[in-house]
């Protein structure tokens, strides 16, 4: 797993999770969207353009919290793949556009885990034009005002208040009872290409593949983080087809087992009739 990370190139560093889509560069660099994670959480961030086109992925681990404005921002060490095909991780900064003012970590290299470390809480805030999602959030306890407040502030780059953050955090903490074998991180943030502001586009989810790699979902497709890059793993239809295929095989196998058992019973009767000790 993460074999491709063994050949990390330029090491860069950020502390606050700030992501910005830079046109032409295809890398996520800056955002003011607060994402509430705790130290030790593994984080996957997929970046999409406003049009929903996948740009790149980051994956890493929350190492420390950075609190520049009184609000909790996770400090994250991450990996990303640049246009040059090199995987970057968070240490140092020289050739990228990371804001030096937010650097709090240097000289540290993300340790590739030997086992998959799963996050316990994933949080994602989606902005305007996602009213359906907001509506669903309201069903989980968000107030419309909270969403609007956060949306407005995020849209304008203003940090949400602590109380707003707490309300969101509480909801997610209360709904974090997800099997650790199923949950990964589900954060997706897109950046508006028009104004450069954060613009979450698409939710994406992460699980663990049978081979231990991260799986992410985008639409009806699943992707596996394999050999350092995201590759098509399967589609939901593929998985459903696989399930159907397995069910068919099981039915056939059960029929074969029943036949074998019948044959065995018959042979045992014959053997008994012949006086054979079995």
């Amino acid at each position: 797993m993460f074999k491709g990370l063994g050949s990390l190139g330029t090491l860069t560093s950020i502390s606050t999770l700030r992501i910005q889509y830079v046109s032409g560069e295809g890398r996520a660099l800056y955002t003011t969207i607060p994402i509430y994670l705790k130290i030790g959480d593994t984080v996957l961030i997929n970046i999409y353009t406003r049009a929903g086109v996948f740009v790149t992925s980051l994956i890493g681990k929350i190492e420390k919290l950075y609190n520049p404005t009184g609000n909790d921002y996770p400090s994250i060490l991450y990996y990303s793949r640049g246009n040059d095909g090199i995987l970057y991780t968070s240490e140092g900064s020289s050739t990228n556009n990371y804001d030096p003012s937010i650097l709090t970590t240097s000289g540290r290299l993300y340790q590739v885990p030997t086992t998959v470390e799963l996050p316990t809480i994933a949080f994602y805030t989606e902005l305007a034009n996602q009213m359906a999602w907001i509506s669903s959030l309201k069903q989980t306890g968000f107030t419309n005002q909270t969403i609007i407040n956060i949306d407005n502030k995020l849209t304008t780059g203003i940090t949400a208040t602590s109380s707003e953050i707490d309300s969101v955090r509480t909801v997610f903490k209360n709904t974090a009872a997800i099997s650790p074998t199923q949950i990964g991180v589900s954060i997706v943030i897109g950046i508006s290409e028009q104004n450069g502001l954060p613009y979450p586009i698409l939710g994406i989810t992460v699980g663990i593949s049978p081979t231990g790699n991260y799986l992410a979902q985008s639409g009806t497709n699943y992707y596996e983080f394999k050999s350092g890059i995201w590759q098509v793993y399967s589609t939901a239809a593929d998985l459903e087809a696989k399930i159907a295929d397995l069910q068919g095989k099981i039915n056939n196998a059960k029929a074969a087992l029943a036949a074998a058992q019948a044959r065995l019973a018959d042979l045992r009767a014959k053997a008994q009739a012949l006086g054979i000790s079995i």
């Binding site: 199923q182 939710g203 979902q217 399930i243």
Partner: peptide
């Protein structure tokens, strides 16, 4: 919640 629905679906499928 968008995304989480898919996550659980993926987990269930797996």
């Amino acid at each position: 919640i968008r995304g989480m629905r898919g996550l659980r679906g993926l987990g269930d499928l797996l």
